[in-house]
Design a protein around this nucleic acid. Structure first.
Length: 902
RNA sequence: GGGCGGUUAGCUCAGUUGGUUAGAGCGUUGCGUUGACAUCGCAAAGGUCGUAGGUUCGAGUCCUAUACCGCCCACCA
């Protein structure tokens, strides 16, 4: 036992335990449909992991969700649920393709040079090589996933699910293809969805220029932030009631430089207050202009190619980039006297979430999901409580998004992903949508079939994740038993991207909400609340932190210290503090195990029995309260607060007080020592069980030793549990009332603590070192019996000489030359010869008296106010008792003051 | 433009059925190392809980307004 190292060696332990857990099959659900003794009556608890990108490297965001989900899984596993955590990863279309393309460029080749097939082959190769890294890193965090159920979004099974989903939506008329205004990423040469566009505030200009009226010197002043789009203009719009321009409506204006003739139209959309009050209309390159163009039946002039280079419609500017075209066009207009002014202006630039390049709104033929019906169902599921979002405030955000949702552009012009299951017949031009690759055209029998070139948005397959990973569309035993899943735990930043889409898809395809609870955690920022980024250099690498401080310390740090949905500022210092906590747990355990060695447990029955001491009762009562609180907090997903309370109890109550007292009780030997040892074991056992979901490694390691030591000595674990073969599968401790325990014990022990603290305090003030045993006189009044029983405890904790600790009901006279104090009505006297300065004493006592007297008058005021009538009786009674104690204290302090003379 | 969050000790943050002297970690100060732990112990200093109203016997906690910081959605050229 005592061979436990002084400092916990997390490196070796973490590796060994993880391997052991996995080998022993502890990560598998208790009741498993794939196992012969499957018992469907055991309630499942299931989490689908938010699949990290195969390209991913572990960052704190992963550490956050892995820790949180592992906590939930471990807790429910201990509660007896059949806990399943399904791991996996996401093919991450754009991200992965970019990575592989980068690699190809380094090799001196390119995706285009290789061709589609070869590129896909290389990407798979890349995935096999690097795709496992993130999973290994997730293991290091202690994730208790069922790795045999690991999935990848491009696996055959999941790909089948994607096809099934696509075909079903298509057949229902919820998927359509057509030209629409979409967000075009010119660098990647693909469409992206609205969500993949981020807007950034950037300085720029508002350019004012003249739209000359045909055959006239008059002009309409127009303002734009993107002059190059003039090349695609097909109208100028004004507000129908705008006096300035009304006369021009219906006339024709000349597009600068190009000389194209376009109409002046009237539309309510135009804001008379903004800019010049006249708006140039580029229906093919602006979403609002697109709508206006449709209303007025305007020409849609596309002036950019796939790479956002000006095309043949740009006349002399053909071949230029957007930026060059803008500069040149403006210069030419200036030369032609068509410009008015450039005004500095704050732009809202749409940029790609991936590459950061400027997104170009563009008309393009793409595949869309008609989202309204799906969104309606998804709204209902939350509105009617089928799905609960935690913290609740995000429900409103969710509603707001779904109520204003636009059709979802699901096609991407990429090569890495699920190819759209649509074929076009070269002969009869039939469009074939099929679950299985067709070999011939079902209408004309032609073999001239070509599959649609596009792949699906990555989030399309992610949306199926909770059920596709369980085997859908097959009605597998896994799907039947584990679906719907329990909690979807993820960051609030992907509420729309992922969570909402899973809800829509889940309801559509399975008829059920894919989970009953959405728990959203916050984002991790640096210690100053800044977003971590490589360029800022403020990134904390979880792998490095785990190397230096241990996985448990990192986990505890991300799990404790912030409220659900709130961002968390993390610093290495915080992790260090939690490493210290882990070390505290380790050493307390080490001490307790060492203690067991020193006690003789197999004494012949001598009739020697012991009852619980006050300290025993107290620690037990506090532990029970903790168990109840943790249970309550877990039920409302307040994991951080629960962790904090366990930490507090362990360190400030169990280690600081009970373990210290236990040392002395054990020194008494015999039955007292045995009972104390058992209490130590049982409380430690309870704490380790509570801590296990937070800090799985150190608790498992310590608990293993504890269990062995307890079993050989016949010591019980905490009530309602057994010593199982591993903590990870041990049962969760339930709070249980214990025979002979009463609430009063807590208060009685509190008095002991107050007295001990007061003595320590006085000693510290008088610079009496702990090594020096001193005398004390205590006049305890009616608390004498309680304190008399605690004589040794008080003496030992306050470093008093037990021979010179005098306890009495009251003193005949107040001792002279002693430092004195009154604590909760109990008088304390420390005869500190030579250290007593009468005037200083008087000052100190007077200050104390003033303080308490202030409390007395405050409480007197309170109790004579309406409070006494209106507040609940128990609350009032509590205050009455406090007042009584304060009054008693005041009287005694006064007496002490008087005895000092004047 | 709409919505959400934050504002509590020097710093980073807890504080969820409103109960009457507001907590932690880190930092600071003093004392302390003969066996659980210096990754430690014992103490101390430090807060009118952003501001102003309101509800209530009672508000950090509920309501209203407001300031500042941050975020999300929308995308008026």
């Amino acid at each position: 036992m005592t061979d436990l190292p002084k400092t916990y060696d997390f490196h070796a332990t973490e590796k060994r335990l993880y391997q052991w857990w996995e080998e022993r099959g502890y990560f598998k659900p208790r009741s498993d449909p794939k196992h012969p003794d499957f018992d469907p009556s055991v309630e499942p608890f299931v989490i689908s992991i938010p699949p990290p990108n195969v390209t991913g490297e572990l960052h704190l965001g992963h550490a956050m969700f892995v820790s949180m989900e592992d906590l939930m899984i471990r807790y429910h596993r201990m509660k007896g649920y059949s806990a399943l955590w399904v791991p996996g990863s996401d093919h991450a279309g754009i991200a992965t393709q970019l990575q592989v393309e980068k690699m190809l460029v380094n090799e001196g080749t390119s995706r285009e040079a290789l061709g589609r097939e070869e590129f896909e082959r290389r990407t798979w190769e890349w995935k096999r090589k690097y795709g496992g890294i993130i999973q290994q890193q997730i293991r290091r965090l202690g994730a208790s996933c069922d790795w045999e159920r690991e999935r990848f979004t491009l696996d055959p099974g999941l790909s089948r699910a994607v096809r099934e989903a696509f075909v079903r939506l298509y057949e229902k008329g919820l998927i359509y293809r057509g030209p629409r205004m979409i967000n075009w990423s010119p660098g990647l040469k693909t469409a992206v969805s609205d969500l993949e566009v981020e807007y950034s505030q950037e300085p720029g200009f508002l350019y004012h220029f003249k739209y000359m009226l045909e055959g006239s010197d008059e002009y309409i002043p127009v303002a734009t932030t993107r002059p190059e789009t003039i090349l695609g203009d097909s109208a100028v719009a004004v507000h129908p009631e705008d006096e300035r321009y009304r006369k021009f409506v219906g006339r024709t204006v000349i597009v600068p430089i190009l000389g194209r003739k376009v109409p002046v139209i009237a539309d309510d959309y135009v804001d008379r207050e903004f800019g010049t009050g006249a708006l140039k209309i580029t229906p093919a390159h602006d979403p609002n202009d697109y709508n206006i163009g449709q209303r007025h039946n305007l020409e849609f002039i596309n002036m950019l190619d796939d790479s956002a280079i000006v095309n043949e419609n740009g006349g002399p500017y053909q071949g230029l980039t957007r930026e060059e075209a803008r500069r040149r066009l403006w210069a030419d207009m200036k030369a032609a006297g068509l410009t008015i002014k450039e005004e500095p202006y704050q732009l809202n630039v749409p940029r790609s979430q991936r590459g950061g390049e400027i997104i170009e709104p563009r008309i393009s033929t793409q595949w869309f999901v008609r989202i309204q019906p799906l969104a309606e169902a998804a709204l209902q599921a939350v509105r009617n409580g089928q799905i609960k979002i935690v913290p609740e405030r995000f429900t409103k955000v969710y509603y707001n998004w779904l109520e204003n949702i636009e059709d979802w552009c699901i096609s991407r012009q990429l090569w890495w992903g699920h190819r759209i299951p649509v074929w076009y017949c070269g002969n009869c031009h039939q469009q074939v949508v099929a679950r299985e690759d067709p070999s011939a055209c079902p209408r004309c029998g032609s073999y001239d079939l070509k599959q649609d070139e596009d792949v699906l948005d990555t989030w399309f397959s992610s949306g199926l994740w909770p059920f596709s990973t369980l085997g859908w569309p097959e009605q597998t035993p896994d799907l039947q038993y584990f679906y719907p899943t329990s909690i979807m735990e993820t960051g609030y930043d992907i509420l729309f991207f992922w969570v909402a889409r899973m809800i829509m898809m889940g309801l559509e395809f399975t008829g059920e909400a894919p989970f009953h609870t959405v728990y959203l955690h916050g984002l991790i920022r640096d210690e100053n609340g800044q977003k971590m980024s490589k360029t800022k250099g403020n990134v904390i690498d979880p792998l490095q932190v785990m190397d230096e401080l241990g996985t448990d310390a990192l986990r505890f740090s991300v799990l404790v210290g912030s409220a659900p949905g709130n961002d968390m500022n993390l610093s290495v210092k915080k992790v260090e503090a939690n490493r210290n906590f882990a070390n505290k747990v380790w050493n307390a355990g080490r001490f307790i195990l060492g203690t067991l060695d020193s006690i003789q447990f197999s004494e012949p029955d001598s009739g020697d029995t012991a009852q619980w001491t006050l300290a025993d009762s107290w620690v037990w009562g506090r532990l029970q309260a903790l168990l109840r609180d943790v249970e309550r907090l877990f039920a409302v997903h307040q994991y951080g607060e629960a962790g904090r309370q366990i930490y507090e109890f362990f360190w400030s109550e169990f280690a600081d007080w009970y373990v210290e007292i236990a040392k002395q009780q054990i020194a008494e030997g015999g039955a007292r020592a045995r009972l104390t040892a058992e209490t130590l074991v049982r409380v430690l056992d309870g704490c380790l069980r509570l801590l296990h979901p937070f800090t799985p490694f150190i608790t498992e390691e310590l608990w293993g030793h504890l269990r062995d030591a307890a079993l050989t000595r016949g010591l019980r674990p905490i009530s309602g549990t057994d010593w199982s073969e591993a903590l990870i599968i041990a049962s969760w401790p339930e709070g249980q009332p214990e025979e002979g325990w009463e609430e009063q014990k807590i208060a009685d022990f509190g008095l002991v603590q107050d007295i001990v603290r007061a003595i320590r305090n006085l000693r510290a003030e008088r610079k009496v070192t702990p090594g020096k045993r001193i005398a004390a006189l205590i006049a305890a009044g009616d608390r004498l019996p309680v304190l008399e029983a605690q004589r040794r405890t008080i003496a030992s904790l306050a470093f008093l000489d037990p021979q010179q600790l005098t306890l009495s009901e009251r003193l005949a006279e107040i001792p002279q030359g002693a430092v004195s104090l009154v604590v909760s009505g109990v008088e304390l006297y420390l005869p500190l010869a030579g250290l007593v300065d009468t005037s200083a004493e008087r000052e100190r006592l007077q200050a104390e008296l003033n303080d308490i007297a202030g409390q007395v008058s405050r409480l007197e005021g309170l109790l004579s106010s309406p409070f006494a009538q209106k507040a609940p009786a128990a609350v009032v009674e509590k205050e009455r008792q406090k007042l009584a104690t304060f009054q008693e204290t005041v009287a005694k302090l006064k007496a002490q003051l008087e005895s000092l003379g004047s």
